[in-house]
Nucleic acid binder design. Sequence first.
RNA 1: UCCCCGGUAGCUCAACCGGUAGAGCACCUGACUGUUAAUCAGGGGGUUGGGGGUUCGAAACCCUCCCGGGGAGCCA
Length: 435
Amino acid sequence: MAQWVYIEDLKNHIGNEVELRGWLYNKRSSGKVKFLIIRDGTGFVQGVMVKGSVPSELFEQYKDLTLESSIILSGTVREEKRAPQGVELDIKDFNILQKSVDYPIPKVREDNIPDVGVLLPKRHLWIRSKKQWALLRIRDTIEKSIEDFYHERKFVRIDAPILTPSACEGSTTLFKTDYFGEPAYLSQSGQLYVEAACMSLGKVYCFGPTFRAEKSKTRRHLMEFWMVEPEIAFYELDDIMALSEEFVEYLVKRVLDERKEELLILGRDISKLEKIKRPFARITYDEAVEILKSKGLDFEWGDDFGGDEETVISESFDTPVIVHRYPAKIKPFYMKKDPKNPEVVLNMDMLAPEGYGEIIGGSQREEDYDVLLKRMQEENLSLDDYKWYLELRKYGSVPHSGFGLGIERTIVWISGIRHVREAIPFPRLLDKIYP
RNA sequence: UCCCCGGUAGCUCAACCGGUAGAGCACCUGACUGUUAAUCAGGGGGUUGGGGGUUCGAAACCCUCCCGGGGAGCCA
């Protein structure tokens, strides 16, 4: 009886008879030679059946092999230069576990890719297709790399709560739930909690889902997305700018090292990723405004950047670009004002190149009790809700800084795709929560 | 909430000035011993998103509703 192996390991079994367990991805016939493309989660491989080399009943079962039927097959692994993966399987036998009838997603064909309106309601099946498979594997590598990056640097992971009593940042809309008769909200950021945690553990990060009930309907927005938020005691703005550069460079390198095949499946221009090396460009908000004006955009100092502005700024550089020291009035209360110019705050945004836009937002936090209290009063925030947050400034307050990186936007950029909805297994979009 | 684009076969799209519905893929039948989006031959498949209007005649023009996509605001 043949040994069950995974497709990604086939190159170690050349000449052996093995068993594959998977699904039929595609098939082709040339009369007396039949080709079956099999996928098993770890990869894709072509199986070959020649008339006369297998029992004729089996050969004729080709017609029962419909797209996405589950199948167990056995055969001999053969090195094959014509095959994209370098190996093929000479089929000896196969057994259809369950025949798939009328699979709703058409066979892969570049001139016939269904509209997302068709694909999204079939997301549970769409993720079987090759590009989605590649994207989910890249996502997994990025998530693993995040863990590795921070643990290699002695950070402690802190899981921030998802159910929270009030807003973390104030401005955006929250999903409201019922907490034993009291209102509770789904977290839109773990930041306030990692600020508390870094006073216990020094270098911390949280990594989990966040929720924004904004009526956003663009390729950059999800209602539920994942964010990693490092926060470090005694770090100032320059320290987190350096950390964010090291972090993003690391993520890109790991994907290049471990998921090149997947990037090629997605048609990514890898040379663009190979340019992602420190130092990244760093400019002030003021300098960014100058770039916009020199490119002929109508832009007033004091406004926030929209999608168009981000695109123009990021396209001016080959690396990601950090824009720092934004006008205080467009930024949240917890950001520390620049002692050299109180009109601006000690914050940083990182824009991915090629027009992909913002992937990181961060800042040095206000650590002075009185200054923070005044800022909160100006914003009309509930001091009861934030009493614990203010207490962090009463008992051994220190300078501290952190940032948040959006996982899906990072995947979109590194993978070179268009829309965040393909960067998460089951996207939650405006008015769309199925499947 | 606002702005823009779209809805024709299972999927992707075409149909000129308003003249009565067409192709590729998929599916079914057949051919083919090396296909990589296989190819070739044949076949079935439509209340043109719903309703109303203009017209001798509407997929096309007008009104309205529904659905989908993109963007603004907000942000990662």
